[in-house]
Design a binder for these strands. Sequence first.
DNA 1: GAGCACTGC
Length: 848
Amino acid sequence: MTPRDLPIYELESAVVAAVRGAGRLIVQAPTGSGKSTQIPQMLWRHGLLGEKGEVVVLQPRRLAARMLAKRVAEEAGTTLGEGVGYQIRLESRVSERTRIRFVTEGILLRQMSFDTALRGISAIVFDEFHERHLYGDISLARALQIQQTIRPDLKLIVMSATLDAGLLKSYLAPCEVLVSQGRSFPVRVEYLAKRTDFEAEPVWDVAARECERIAAATGGDFLVFMPGAYEIGRTVQAIQGARGLRDFVTFPLHGELPPEAQDRAVARHEARKIIVSTNVAETSLTIDGVTAVVDCGLARIARFDPHRGINTLLVEKISAASADQRAGRAGRTAPGICVRLWTEREHEQRAPQELPEVKRLDLAEVVLTLKASGIDDIARFPWLEKPDEVGLVRAESLLADLGALAGEKKSITELGRKMLRFPVHPRYARMLLAAQEHGCVRAVALMAALTQGRNFLLRGVPKEVERARGDALGEEHESDFFLLMRAWRYADKANYAVEACRRLGIHAQGARQAGPLFEQFLAIAAKEGLDVGERRADGVEIRKCVLAGFSDQLARRLDAGTLRCEIIHGRRGVLARESGIQQAKLLVAGEISEIGRGDGEVNTLLSLATAVEEPWLKELFPDDYRETRAVTYDDQQRRVVTRRERRFRDLVLEAKASSDEAPLDEAARLLTKEVLAGRLKLEAWDDTVEQWILRVNRLAEWFPELEVNPVTDADRATLIEQVCYGELGYRDIKDKPVMPVLKDWLTAEQFAVLDDYLPERLTMGNGRKSRLTYHKDGPPILSARIQELYGIEGKFAVGHGRVPVKFEVLAPNQRPIQVTDDLTNFWREQYPKIKTELSRRYPRHEWR
DNA sequence: GAGCACTGC
């Protein structure tokens, strides 16, 4: 077959006409149609690039950019790097004579921020646009702006396999849309006949049952999709216990498994096999011989929550597009079947696609890029899809904290421009610039390089690996970054030998990728006039640089006995247990993530920690570091009570609180504050009202025609306050969860829509339920501790085993309010001590 | 039982 036989050639004359006419074109064509290789050549051949101009073809992956360039160079009869070339990070094969240039997305965006006229570029082709990567969205928007203002001759072509062409068409209007057909193997899709509640029947049991049911229907191997390692383990157990599946061998497959185990799962076997896998099998790995897919319809999905400034990783329902992708895995070699563990009706209500990245990632880096192009009002930037307002505000305030933006309009500063020279997250760019003053540019460049890719220091390794790691790398109490650096040096010295790395639980391939990045950062630093000389860097100075980049993630350990921390901006979390920084009072987290565990509970984890000292705060941020005196008037005692505090931003570093007994409404006020800050939970509030607030707001967003009033943060705060002051019946909320509270927001008609559509969309996979078993009249020591922490008088009840603590507070009108706080680790570690103490004091009472 | 998977400068 010659290139001319490719289906895309049916469109040649239409493509040429459209590009010549409007200068904007959408091509919708499936993989294998030849669009990526042929359309750039058509432009060249038909003289649409002018005398010397080039066409830039945007690719989401490096490998694709390289391969496509190679193939097109052959077809066009030129040497790679001459007429046809490519440019990816750290690698470039182009010349002045290059007319077709394949580039990855970051390259073009960088070029745009340094050369706004895009000199020499006649056309830009956006390939695989349906993936909706952040840089793809931004560079299309910028290209459109450039075309509309200074470069009306610039041609823009957007290509994709599947596409919400309506959205894109109106965005690019006036614009032509051309469609080309493709071909594929059939996969029969089956749904469950009735809705299954995974709370009642675990998803792994349902999956095993369905495998058993279809075992005879097809002769090939099975692929079962599960959201994570925990569910995979349970599924493997369930399958091995199923009678009808005795002839199968079963393999788990996920990213944290050692490479040998992954190879074993993918390899050919005598017996039929069942692979139970995460999303690795949806995108990156291809597995031959699979004729049946069992899809649980769930995945752990990473997002950035701009409200709290943290990453989340929670189980969610996958989109219809993603389910189709999974089903397609059954039909690679022959027709196949796919069993979906949800009903057809539920399927109709699933989101058609995943959210584009612009709506779910941290925007700090692109906002800085836009500011550098002189776009101060980013809310009015012509986004294809506008990100959440909160996300933009969060990005701007982080950049302002880092010193990259300043002034009323939040314009880019000189420092911000310097930061943009470094192709990393602004936090690390800021650290690199700070490193110049602290004499440790080399070390910080290495830290930046080490955190770019996947974590190469594996977690949860066996005891003997942990020991070997300790022997080879030593212990680390100052910064988790330092251990990472030593691990990398070890791997580098061992020349990334797989065996040597495995001994210490180091992912050799991951470690290897950091080297070239380190070199790149050093080269840029040298070019920017920073001192990259080799010298023994001082640990204190490096840690100060970390503080400069992550000052908004400063955390204070709540006490020495637990890993619980209070973070700036009213957040709480738990230090990762693999962190070496277990002694420090103050630390900075390089990463904060909310992680859903297999059982549906959720934790906020602080990882990549660095110990910092209080005096550094004053040194680096004199304006934010202050001593305050809070004065309140105590009505009942008729006297003034003062508190002395030392603060960094809103984190109280040290407080001398009044020991006076607080009157009731003072308790209610404090309680409101703690609940609003997320440090305490109102029992039952979380699982009912919060969910419904979310639903009402989604209703407002998705069905604008219903004219629903969204519940604002202020409304929510008012409700919480009313509960804390005893004005709104706490028990009413618990017994009749929604309507008494939210009836003001919804009419009967609106509620009917909500009831029909939303619960299914919003119920998270295996749900989120608190299991509180508790014991009345808990140990007095713990009660005293809660009083000390919160200054709230109350009667406390304590749980055993997995221990959230419940306590009860009286509202001003004497209504009891129950509150919970998770003191799990504190309890576990302290319990033996407490028990001894209690047995001594109360010998006749039996303490379990 | 704390932790999906990718990609990019």
